[in-house]
Design a protein around this nucleic acid. Structure first.
Lengths: 207, 207
DNA sequence: GACATAACAGACCGGGCGACCTGTCTTGCT
DNA sequence: AGCAAGACAGGTCGCCCGGTCTGTTATGTC
């Protein structure tokens, strides 16, 4: 019948799943979790209700998958890995900031850090989301703390102080992004990068 | 009929309005704007649908009123005023942090800063909310910048650098609160306070 | 080739949402 | 006292939300 030539469509569950995750991740970041409907996700991914609920039975399951399969990799690629491989911690941090600021300026809009956005909206009310998001923060923080311990300034700090310094870096970034979102400008990020760098250099976290 | 003795109930529009705002402010902060229904507000304030919509025709109007009548005063009382009257800027900032951290520890839960929460959720998608929240941030930032200009370290900075330093302080607080919310602990706030203080003192913002 | 199961399609449903609307009582003004 | 406007009460409405259900097609297995 339609033997060899016209076998156009085949099932591609992984590809479809990826499309759903991409669409959902984008919508969750721009509009937020509660403001995004399953219908919005369906339209953005151009799929049917059946397909969506086949891959993700509930909205919460979808969000948890977005966190682990989309948000977490972004954090690892833009923060954790660069910090691990960089020769100078201070330099790496400043560069990460400036790359993000550059991205904002050419996109001309600030949607915020996906991890921050989801944390603020979901972390308090829902324990499931909280533990998922918290562990990501901890991964980020411990990568920073470990790297801080490898600098001349960080070597003399104990475990707690290193964690505190790492938390401070994350807080500065997170808060700067928040301000950037409020003002729709990259200025707060650049301001934070500059001042964070003086703080880092003073504490000799620059090598 | 019920002439003198039994005239128990009287209208109290301002009191009712205040109750609505209190309830809504609390719910918006803990659950978020979109996750809070008008019915939740009605129940929390123990009023009827008619009364609620008489004072605030739409949910958005209610939220805007919450921002200007509840959130803004909180920011002014806990941040702007203390900074204006304090003798030491650095000392004032550290004290504000520690008071907030203390509050968290005895309440045993972190709901986050109301301004931050609403900004993250609403500021990007809705221009009405954005301008309202942004002006509050600007008020906060300019109060800080002005005070920084009055310190020995800040006097030599130009207008832009002062604004950047002010933004950095806000970012550090905002981000620390975000982390605190994610971990449900006051530790990130204390970490930020300590490290922010080092940065402040190094830049001689301490008088 | 038979058959169980996965991968989708798409109609459908109960409930909750924000908003509206009519009615009653209260208040302020003259 | 009279009367318009304000302040509330409470039922109602239509819509949209997340989730379910049944049906159809593709896929792996023996």
């Amino acid at each position: 019948m339609k033997a060899k030539a016209a076998r156009a469509r085949r099932n591609d569950p992984l590809g479809l799943r990826a499309r759903i995750l991409d669409a959902a991740a984008s919508l969750f970041q721009t509009r937020g979790y509660h403001a995004t409907g399953m219908r919005d996700v369906m339209e953005a991914a151009t799929i049917t209700s059946g397909a969506l609920h086949h891959h993700f039975p509930t909205k919460q399951a979808l969000a948890l998958a977005v966190i682990s399969d989309r948000v977490a990799p972004v954090v690892r690629e833009t923060w954790i890995e660069p910090i691990r491989v960089a020769s100078s911690l201070s330099g790496a941090i400043v560069q990460i900031f400036s790359e993000i600021a550059r991205g904002i300026e050419q996109r001309k809009s600030v949607v915020g850090c996906p991890l921050n956005n989801l944390t603020m909206e979901l972390s308090f009310s829902n324990p499931q989301f909280r533990s998922s998001l918290r562990s990501l923060f901890e991964e980020w923080q411990s990568a920073l703390a470990e790297r801080i311990g490898a600098t001349p300034g960080g070597a003399r700090l104990d475990r707690t102080k290193r964690a505190a310094a790492a938390a401070f870096v994350i807080a500065a970034y997170s808060g700067a992004m928040n301000l950037a979102k409020a003002t729709q400008s990259a200025a707060p990020l650049r301001a934070a990068a500059g001042n964070l760098s003086t703080w880092l250099d003073q504490r000799r976290f620059n090598e």
